[in-house]
């Protein structure tokens, strides 16, 4: 099967202040990919997401999009602490905002937009919450709302930033099942610093620690890890997915 490249980063340097958070990153994301991005706090995971999403302009290097729609169709689930829980907005309005790019600035939502949003909420099992404000929701419900927003426009790529910050163990397993289903339709990029529970879901793993270490495989050997200087758990996929916990010293 020929793989279609969706986004390609070429020798990207990016960051906020004087110090770049990402150095010389080459990264290509293909259709059908399910990549787990791991790395230490402050290692540049979020910076990488921002570059891919087009929120942050890199200092140098290229970001090439090869998405079939003209407007970037990348869905995005933010970290829990990024949103203001007390903001006066209803669940339905949040999900509808995922369809904003389609009708741009002035037009109002159409009936079919509303139907799409509602059927998305139904799929997530939270249609009865549609007129609640987000402040009334639990962490897991809120995560479902934001996931609905991210995928309601049927994007070609879905990015999740630390989905485990929503703290809802009951939904977490369900979430990964949903993601596995979604992966048939879109590429998925999942950022986390705790790979413990998802090792069996992601297809490949990339490690960000200012540099990006990515080999298109779901096996990371200890040798590779130590060469990359990436302080994480060692993950392998055997017949039965399992995790080998092995931490090595930070420099």
């Amino acid at each position: 099967m020929e793989k279609k490249s969706l986004v390609k980063l070429e020798s990207v340097n990016a960051g906020y202040g004087e110090e770049p958070a990402l150095i010389d990153v080459d990264f290509e994301i293909y259709k059908q990919d399910f990549i787990g991005i791991i790395g230490p706090n402050g290692g540049g995971k979020t910076t990488l997401l921002k570059v891919i999403l087009g929120i942050l302009k890199p200092y140098s290097g290229k970001v090439k999009y090869n998405l079939s729609r003209k407007i970037k169709s990348i869905g995005y689930l933010p970290q829990f602490n990024q949103v203001d829980e007390q903001f006066p907005i209803t669940v339905l309005d949040v999900v509808l905002s995922g369809l904003m790019l389609k009708n741009r600035i002035i037009t109002r939502y159409t009936k079919s937009d509303k139907k799409k949003a509602e059927s998305m909420l139904e799929r997530m099992g939270i249609l009865d919450l549609k007129n609640k404000t987000i402040g009334e929701l639990s962490g897991g419900q809120m995560q479902r709302v934001f996931l609905s927003r991210a995928i309601v426009s049927k994007p070609e790529m879905l990015i999740l930033d630390e989905p485990n910050t929503y703290v809802d163990n009951k939904f977490e397993g369900e979430l990964y099942e949903i993601l596995r289903e979604l992966n048939d339709e879109m590429a998925i990029l999942l950022v986390t610093h705790d790979l413990g529970t998802i090792t069996s879901y992601v297809k490949t793993i990339a490690c960000v620690n200012r540099e990006l270490h990515y080999h298109r495989s779901n096996v990371i050997t200890e040798k590779q890890l130590s060469a990359y200087n990436c302080p994480i758990q060692l993950i392998t996929h055997g017949e039965v997915p399992h995790t080998v916990l092995k931490k090595h010293n930070k420099e």
């Binding site: 921002k50 999403l53 087009g54 929120i55 407007i71 970037k72 990348i74 995005y76 933010p78 990024q82 949103v83 203001d84 903001f87 907005i89 309005d93 949040v94 905002s97 904003m100 790019l101 600035i105 002035i106 109002r108 939502y109 927003r149």
Partner: peptide
């Protein structure tokens, strides 16, 4: 009236609005 949706969503989640390519 004209920009209501934009104002609402930019206020609610600026990063998401940016990622969607809104001004």
């Amino acid at each position: 009236i004209i920009f209501f949706k934009n104002i609402l969503f930019i206020s609610f989640d600026e990063k998401y609005a940016k990622a969607q390519g809104l001004p």
